[in-house]
């Protein structure tokens, strides 16, 4: 199965399960959890089911396209189900079957792995999913996001597209993955990977980036103070990416590192609080039926 067919099958499988198919968010980010379709939507009482491909950038993983498994840019396929349904694991096994991975042909295992994203003020419990020893998915029940306890809890399924494709196509290097037809992953992405590696590891202008971090941080704060959740959050994402670039350039010492993380986390929390307040103001429009009645009744009882 080529790489784009793999994505198409995941999309159609999760669309059949009732997920909104969103598209990647148009800003640099290190993981799908930064997409507002995840970061914002898992907050608050409103139900939400979404699936999307997310291109991710991890400047410190850049290796000029020379490492067989590690590239600075790669894809995640993320599925958020909120509230997490009781059969979420069965749905997940179903998605593997849709990809042609038969659980009786392979050794599929859930291996404890707890997730934490300090810059997002987030953590959850779950597993790595192993197929014959290869980690192909990260499965997490989010417990906190942006510093807020989640209720209801959302489940997050993140497929490593390249990992699964390597596994299914029996290849040993990301390079050699078949994208479609005669085209390999390298044909599609290698030049960008090499150039971005040079940028991330050698050329990124540290002084400029440090300046940008300050600027973006101020702008994020200003916008969030204006109760503009989405634009404010965009600047949080920019801060996060600039921090990642500085880190890849080795421009952040161990002690500074924690300080940077704290600054981004503070912004994330502010963005989460801003989004939640806005949704509440809007009356949590996606909340329907019994859940809505219960919430409104609770709110009126607590005088809120």
């Amino acid at each position: 199965m080529n790489l784009q067919e793999l994505i198409l099958r995941l999309q159609s499988y999760w669309a059949e399960q009732g997920c909104v198919l969103q598209q990647p968010y148009d800003l640099e980010k290190g993981a799908g959890t930064f997409n507002p379709a995840t970061f914002f939507r898992v907050l608050g009482p409103e139900p939400w089911s979404v699936a999307f491909v997310e291109p991710c950038r991890r400047p410190s993983d850049a290796r000029y396209g020379e490492n067989p498994n590690r590239w600075g840019a790669y894809y995640q396929f993320q599925v958020i189900l909120k509230p997490s349904p009781a059969n979420v694991l069965d749905l997940y096994w179903g998605s593997l079957k849709a990809l042609g991975i038969d659980p009786l042909e392979h050794d599929l295992r859930l291996v404890e792995d707890n997730w934490e994203a300090p810059t997002q003020g987030a953590w959850g419990l779950g597993w790595e999913v192993w197929a014959d020893g290869m980690e192909i998915t990260q499965f997490t029940y989010f417990q906190q996001m942006g510093g807020f306890e989640l209720n209801p809890v959302a489940s997050e399924i993140t497929y490593g597209i390249e990992r699964i494709a390597m596994y299914m196509q029996n290849v040993d290097r990301i390079h050699d993955l078949n994208w479609v037809g005669e085209l390999s992953y390298a044909d599609v992405h290698l030049q960008a990977e090499v150039e971005q590696s040079v940028y991330s590891l050698e050329e990124a202008d540290v002084a400029m980036l440090q300046g940008l971090f300050e600027t973006y941080e101020r702008e994020a704060t200003r916008l969030l103070d204006l109760k503009l959740a989405y634009p404010g959050y965009d600047y949080v994402l920019k801060c996060s990416h600039v921090f990642n670039l500085l880190d890849a350039r080795g421009a952040i010492s161990v002690t500074e590192r924690q300080a940077f993380i704290n600054r981004v986390r503070t912004l994330s929390r502010k963005a989460a609080a801003c989004y939640l307040a806005k949704r509440e103001e809007l009356g949590f429009p996606l909340l329907k039926g019994e859940a809505r009645e219960t919430l409104l009744a609770d709110a009126s009882r607590s005088g809120g």
């Binding site: 659980p103 009786l104 042909e105 392979h106 050794d107 020893g133 290869m134 040993d172």
Partner: peptide
């Protein structure tokens, strides 16, 4: 493994690649 695979060879091959 936690499953009786149809073919141990398939499971061994996958693990071999990861290793």
């Amino acid at each position: 493994a936690n499953t009786i695979p149809r073919s141990k060879e398939v499971v061994a091959r996958g693990n071999r690649r990861v290793l």
